[in-house]
Design a protein around this nucleic acid. Structure first.
Length: 454
RNA sequence: GCCCAGGUGGUGUAGCGGCCUAUCAUGUCGGCCUGUCACGCCGACGACUCGGAUUCAAAUUCCGACCUGGGCGCCA
């Protein structure tokens, strides 16, 4: 064992700073090439193949795999003893010579001088990281930390991380301010959806279902362009592959803009995300076997609600009345017809929230829109009502009491600019982009109707 | 919330009244093997969600509970 390994193996003391840096500066497995010469790697034992005279260890870190080969007669006895005692998924440090060899994965392998067992993994494992036997989602989520070690799952979250970065860059480069708004709130923002009640000292409070009211308040605050990426909580008891009780919402609000402006912004963002992922996450897309990853083309088709239900009625062979919400089956039918991302526009005012701005000439429809992927809804937005009295009228029209919205209404009396915005579901975006079958695949630790742990 | 389908070794499954001291794969342990890459071969280990009922006999049928998956509803 090298002094470095020995140093930080002693759990009771921190290693000297130089070794600490060395730890983080270790050679990542993916960066090891046939001509690397000598390397020190840290990782997990992915597989062990014992051929008798030859022992192969497949070592994995987040970046990839390398084969460590031990010719039994040639390696130091101490190294052999350590290698023979390893269990799958144990954490090891391996130092050794890098050899170019055609037969090995990646055209190189390591012949070890030293192997240090940093932490032994118990067996049996609750989950097969190698995936010789597939595990059900429920089993996988119970042992999520192991599940995430699978290259396929790692790839999803490395892409998600990159998408977060792309979103930040996109908005900052366009003059948006990144805001964070409270997730503990006093009341429902818009009624309708179920809220999670929590105890807030001696009062009752709720987990926020949407930053809607706060980002509008930032328009009143003169911020003009804001975005937020944050959690939203919905207490609905749904049980589907596309709903979560805790989700991540990408929220945007822009002053002096109407719905057309923010729709253009939204489709631009979608394209930026797809093309960024295509360019910068080629390796992860390859791991996910997404060889035909396509960047959507703009502009996305815009179809009025009236046309959408007509398509749905025709394709599902069942009459959908004007003014009905678009159900799951209708949504699928329209998606099949469209085949690409599209917007549904000109929604009936009656089925959109009170803050959606009705058209002046035809107040029965409003300036709201949904962004759809062929599989499901991704985002919804609108030009908002910025006029106090219209807003009060619309709140009443929904059967709600304006008095209970006083904290929301107040900013509208002191110079609220016209504005528009939208909210985009991060998990649905990832799910549809990466063709995942279940939205839980797009969250590290999903919260659904039944799952609160881990 | 409604409807449907399920709960069998660590994991994924077969079996669906007696042929079950329960199949197969993977895993784990032991043995053999110098180029594996789903390594191979030999041997062993390891399971019927819980409670009640029917029956000579229950993994298998019935009832209840708990848990899970899926569809729908609901849902900016």
């Amino acid at each position: 064992m090298s002094p470095e390994c020995a140093g930080w193996l002693r759990k009771t003391q921190y290693p000297p700073l130089t070794n600490y840096i060395r730890f983080y500066m270790r050679t990542s497995i993916a960066s090891i090439h046939p001509d690397t010469g000598y390397a020190e790697i840290m990782g997990w034992v992915h597989e062990i193949r014992d051929l008798g005279g030859l022992l192969f260890l497949l070592i994995r870190d987040r970046s990839g795999f390398i084969q460590v080969t031990l010719p039994r007669k040639k390696v130091p006895p101490a190294v052999l003893v350590t290698a023979e005692g390893l269990s799958r998924e144990s954490v090891v440090c391996v130092k050794g010579r890098v050899v170019a060899i055609e037969k090995a994965p990646g055209g190189r392998e390591m012949i070890p001088d030293e192997i240090a067992l940093l932490n032994r993994a118990e067996s049996p494992l609750p989950l097969d990281v190698v995936e010789k036997v597939p595990a059900e989602l429920d089993t996988r989520l119970d042992a999520r930390f192991l599940d995430i070690r699978k290259p396929r799952v790692t790839a999803i979250f490395l892409i998600r991380s990159r998408v977060m970065q792309i979103i930040g860059d996109f908005f900052h480069s366009r003059g948006f301010a990144y805001v964070t708004t409270p997730k503990v709130v006093a009341a429902a923002t818009e009624g309708g959806t179920e809220l999670f009640p929590i105890a807030y000292f001696e009062r009752e409070a709720f987990l926020s279902q949407s930053p809607q009211l706060y980002k509008q308040m930032m328009m009143a605050a003169g911020f003009e362009k804001v975005f937020e990426v944050g959690p939203i909580f919905r207490a609905e008891e749904h049980n589907t592959t596309k709903h979560l009780n805790e989700a991540t919402s990408i929220d945007v609000e822009v002053s002096f803009a109407d719905e057309r402006h923010v729709m253009a912004l939204l489709e631009e963002l979608i394209v930026e995300i797809y093309s960024g992922v295509a360019e910068e996450c080629a390796e992860q897309l390859d791991t996910l076997k997404l060889h035909n990853f396509e960047v959507p083309e703009t502009p996305f088709p815009r179809i009025p609600y009236a046309d959408a239900i007509e398509i749905a009625s025709r394709r599902t062979e069942s009459e959908i009345a004007y003014g009905e919400d678009i159900g799951t089956l209708a949504e699928k039918a329209i998606g099949e017809e469209m085949g690409v991302h599209y917007f549904i526009i000109e929604w009936p005012t009656a089925i959109k929230p009170y803050y959606a701005m009705p058209f002046e000439q035809r107040p029965e429809i409003c300036r709201a829109f949904d962004l759809m992927h062929p599989r499901m809804e991704l985002a919804s937005g609108a030009q908002r009502v910025h006029l106090h009295d219209t807003l009060v009228r619309q709140i009443r029209a929904k059967g709600l009491n304006p008095e209970s919205f006083e904290f929301y209404l107040k900013p509208f009396r002191y110079g609220m600019p016209p504005h528009a915005g939208w909210g985009l579901g991060m998990e649905r975006l990832i799910m549809t982009m990466l063709d995942l079958g279940n939205i839980r695949e797009a969250v590290l630790f999903p919260r659904d109707r039944h799952r609160l742990v881990p």
